[in-house]
């Protein structure tokens, strides 16, 4: 069995993405709870030694230390999913996964910031963050809508991939920043399918029922 450790905070949606893939793959993994709020433990020397950026999640696989949510998803899929379904290697599906991972890392960051402000931050004006989040969700919704025209139900391949995992929390948690699911019908249907996957688990803020 692989010797995996995830440095984790339950309320962090990036850590949730790693937990989801570990669960979908049925991998045993040691979970180390990090006191992010209010302790900011991830910015103390023992954690900075693992990730100088002071962020979670951090994964260790044997002696190998890996940071960055998308890199962790890609590594887990490449190293521990012999079926190659979660990270398909053939041409277009692979490229589409990369494209949505980039979208997740670069663009969806705004949804994480909006949510952190609304949950933990001082009261302030989140209007522009919420407007940007709506725009991103609309891009995701219309991508799935158009894929649905040819019977495709997932973001990058004929089956779920790490792209779907990387995108799921931004939609599932959007109500935390006051964005209802009313206006994203394709994401609603995708979210139901995602929740029905074997090994799916919730995080705080995502209800068990649907």
């Amino acid at each position: 069995m692989p010797d995996l450790t995830l440095y984790n905070y339950d309320l962090d949606e990036s850590c949730y993405k790693a937990r989801l893939l570990l669960s979908f793959l049925g991998l045993d993994c040691k979970i180390v709870a990090v006191d992010v709020f209010p302790g900011r433990e991830q910015t103390t020397p023992p954690f900075l030694a693992l990730n100088p950026l002071g962020r979670l999640p951090i994964l260790t696989d044997g002696d190998f230390v890996l940071t960055g949510t998308e890199a962790i998803l890609a590594h887990l899929a490449r190293a521990h999913d012999p079926s190659e379904r979660w990270l398909p290697m053939e041409g277009e599906a692979f490229a589409r996964v990369m494209s949505w991972l980039t979208f997740s890392a670069r663009d969806l960051d705004v949804t994480i910031t909006a949510r952190q402000r609304s949950l933990f931050g001082p009261p302030g004006d989140e209007t522009s963050l919420v407007a940007a989040s709506r725009r991103l969700l609309r891009i995701m919704d219309e991508h799935l809508l158009a894929r649905g025209y040819t019977g495709e139900e997932w973001f990058a391949a004929p089956h779920p991939t790490i792209a779907d995992i990387a995108l799921f929390p931004a939609f599932a948690l959007s109500r935390d920043v006051g964005i209802d699911h009313d206006e994203y019908p394709a994401l609603r249907r995708w979210s139901r399918r995602f929740r029905g996957l074997s090994g799916f688990r919730v995080m705080p803020g995502i209800p068990e029922y649907f």
């Binding site: 699911h181 019908p185 609603r188 649907f210």
Partner: peptide, 16 residues
Amino acid sequence: VSLAHSVEPGSAAGVR
């Protein structure tokens, strides 16, 4: 208030 296929059997959606 919705396209018919947007609300699947066995599911619910909010609308305004």
